[in-house]
């Protein structure tokens, strides 16, 4: 019980350090909102079809950038900030203390998920206020489930990828190289409109495409539950693989 309290306190400290760190706060909090605004203004005027519903492209960006927010807050943020903390010796210090390692990881992950939830809420509010996007009702459970599965999987992958990051200088490069190309081909930054078959295939190997699809489809589904079982299974498989790598290879000490 005491350890749970310690874990919760750790979220407070992690959040303090997060909002005071200009890079973490800017890239995690400001970037998704900035992209939402830019994409909606630039490409938002057209119409498109999703699940047989005609929508304005501007509203497409609400769930799409929600997906991006989760990837940024969970995968990118966790991978980069853990690499920096590992390199600085702060993680080693924590591991030498009586704080159980699960409590630290729990705090780190919970903090990232809370940031992701905040960003998704901002995206939804932005869409509702400026583009009249109505929030899903009957498909809300499916939307939230996709969010939870996605957030968990990208957190696991964020922890896992630190095992191939040699030092904190290399962290932003490795993390962005692994994520940026996928964001362009995965129905996030640009709606995929009859993509070449090979590109479609490539993007479907990776979890971002499935995550974006699951959020977008459940956001615009008119009837039925909106549950995208197949997408969730792929995301879950990636998350499980990430978890295995994270548990097996995570390092608490600088790699020098």
């Amino acid at each position: 019980m005491n350890d749970l309290r310690r874990a919760l306190m750790q979220i407070v400290y992690i959040n303090k350090a997060f909002i005071r760190s200009p890079i973490a706060a800017f890239f995690t909090l400001v970037f998704p909102i900035m992209f939402l605004v830019i994409f909606s203004v630039l490409f938002g005027n057209g119409k498109m079809q999703i699940q047989g519903v005609t929508i304005s492209v501007a509203t497409f960006y609400v769930p799409a950038i929600a997906a991006f927010s989760v990837v940024t807050a969970c995968y990118t943020n966790i991978a980069i900030s853990l690499s920096i903390a590992r390199d600085s010796g702060a993680l080693k210090r924590i591991r030498g203390s009586p704080l159980p390692v699960w409590a630290y990881m729990f705090a780190k992950i919970t903090h990232s998920v809370l940031i992701a939830v905040l960003l998704v809420a901002i995206c939804a509010a932005f869409g509702a206020v400026f583009y009249g996007a109505t929030l899903p009702t009957t498909t809300l459970p499916a939307f939230l489930l996709a969010l939870v599965v996605g957030a968990a999987a990208f957190c696991a992958l964020g922890v896992a990828v630190t095992s191939v990051i040699p030092n904190s200088d290399a962290a932003p490069a490795i993390v962005n190289a692994s994520i940026l190309p996928l964001l362009f081909i995965s129905n996030v930054f640009v709606p995929l409109n009859n993509p070449p078959a090979w590109l479609d295939l490539v993007s479907k190997i990776f979890p971002i495409r499935h995550f974006a699809d699951a959020l977008v489809k459940s956001f615009f589904q008119l009837s039925g539950s909106g549950l995208q079982t197949n997408d969730l299974l792929v995301i879950g498989a990636w998350g499980a693989a990430g978890l295995v790598v994270a548990i097996r290879y995570f390092d608490w000490e600088p790699r020098r």
Binding site: Y13, S21, S88, K92
Partner: peptide
């Protein structure tokens, strides 16, 4: 070697 969070 020192290891503390720089922003606290």
């Amino acid at each position: 070697t020192v290891g503390v969070d720089p922003y606290l």
